[in-house]
Simulated assay, not measured.
Amino acid sequence: MADLYRKNLESERRQLWATCRLKGLAKDTPQRLRIVEIDRLLAEHKAKQSKPD
Rank of each mutant, 00 (worst) to 15 (best):
M1S: 06
A2N: 07
D3R: 03
L4S: 02
L4Y: 05
Y5D: 14
Y5M: 12
Y5T: 13
K7Y: 07
K7S: 12
L9D: 12
E10D: 15
E10W: 13
E10F: 10
E10I: 13
E12M: 05
R13W: 07
R13Q: 13
R14M: 07
Q15M: 04
L16T: 09
L16Q: 08
L16A: 07
W17K: 06
T19P: 00
C20S: 12
R21Q: 11
L22N: 03
K23Q: 10
K23E: 10
K23C: 02
G24S: 06
A26V: 01
K27C: 04
K27A: 12
K27P: 03
K27S: 11
T29L: 08
Q31R: 04
R32P: 04
L33I: 12
I35H: 12
V36K: 09
V36H: 08
V36L: 08
E37Y: 09
E37N: 12
E37R: 14
D39I: 07
L41C: 13
L42K: 08
L42W: 08
L42Y: 11
A43H: 08
A43T: 08
E44F: 03
E44P: 00
H45A: 06
H45D: 05
A47H: 01
Q49A: 15
S50K: 05
K51M: 09
K51I: 02
P52Q: 03
P52W: 03
